[in-house]
Design a protein around this nucleic acid. Structure first.
Length: 291
DNA sequence: CACTTGACCTGTCCGC
DNA sequence: TGCGGACAGGTCAAGT
């Protein structure tokens, strides 16, 4: 569900809403899966702590605390972090939020803050949040192996080509979904950027020229920046920190557009399956590889 | 080692 | 209306 632009949107919202607030209590409804820490650790390093920063690496959120502990959150497919407090909503009521009264049946963790609450909701329970010493965060397995941030200046097209060539034998879609090649691309932005670069998702990486990969590098950054500007994509579950929708999906060119005309050539967009994922292509703009 | 597939969960939608 | 099966935006373990 949430890819880099969605997680970044949540990060910006949470940073605005949570910084400086003190954690007063934690209620875990789905322990240990959604929040595996023991009570002693939570009591010692979370209760009474103040939120000092909210950061992001790849699709992971990092809520940094004054105790030098960090709440690490992965939303996976259906996770949501929804803030309710006097700042965002009059008297703490949901108003224009897509989410109704909280907690609800998908609520896994409830964090009480000064005059506010943060709800970790997750319908499918794939997501998790976990407390780590801040210094240990870089040593988490995922953090050690995850690839470069695509929106940073250091992510040059040369670096992208060099890293993606390590996956020369697989399909280009599987390669850009691989978080060790680059961070943050998921199913939506994979399809959108491959359409932008006119590359068929089932093409083998080895059959894609460096010139095409350079275009793809540009498209990945373009699509992700645009999606952040639009507040992410709300297709089913995703909402931002205030429980509101993102609008990138209204600007999507192929994702969830099967049966609609390709915005470039008017050919009907098709849905297939590549790398085990639902995949949207324009059969004319994106020529199917000949095997 | 590189690559693919299934598992983790719950909910929804579609066809019979 | 009920029921079974496929599918849903991510990642990891286990399989080939």
């Amino acid at each position: 569900m949430p890819e880099l632009p969605e997680v970044e949107t949540v990060r910006r919202g949470l940073k605005e809403l949570m910084i400086g607030r003190t954690i007063e209590g934690v209620k875990c409804i789905d322990s240990p899966k959604s929040f595996p820490n023991d009570t002693a650790t939570v009591d010692a390093f979370m209760i009474g702590a103040t939120v000092s920063d909210v950061r992001r690496r790849a699709k992971v959120l990092l809520i940094e605390l004054s105790t030098d502990y960090t709440i690490v959150v992965h939303l996976k497919m259906t996770g949501q972090l929804v803030f309710r407090g006097e700042q965002a909503f009059g008297a703490g009521h949901p108003n224009d939020s897509l989410i109704g009264e909280l907690p609800d049946k998908s609520t896994r963790v409830e964090v009480a803050l000064t005059h506010a609450k943060l709800f970790f909701n997750d319908q499918r329970k794939f997501g998790w949040m976990k407390l780590y010493p801040t210094l240990e965060v870089p040593n988490i397995d995922f953090m050690k192996k995850v690839g470069p941030e695509p929106l940073e200046d250091a992510f040059t097209k040369e670096l992208f080509i060099q890293r993606i060539r390590r996956r020369n034998n697989t399909t280009i879609k599987a390669a850009i979904l691989d978080q060790t090649v680059l961070a943050g691309v998921g199913n939506i932005y994979a399809d959108e950027s491959l359409w932008g670069a006119k590359i068929h998702p089932a093409s083998r990486v080895r059959d894609v020229s460096d010139e095409s990969l350079a275009v793809l590098h540009h498209e990945i950054r373009y699509v992700m920046n645009l999606a952040i500007e639009k507040g992410g994509s709300t297709d089913r579950n995703y909402v931002n920190a205030e429980g509101k929708r993102g609008s990138y999906i209204d600007f999507a060119r192929v994702f969830r557009k099967e049966g609609m005309p390709c915005p470039r050539c008017e050919t009907t967009v098709e849905k297939t399956r590549v790398a085990g994922r639902g995949t949207h292509v324009c059969p004319v703009c994106q020529q199917e590889p000949v095997e």
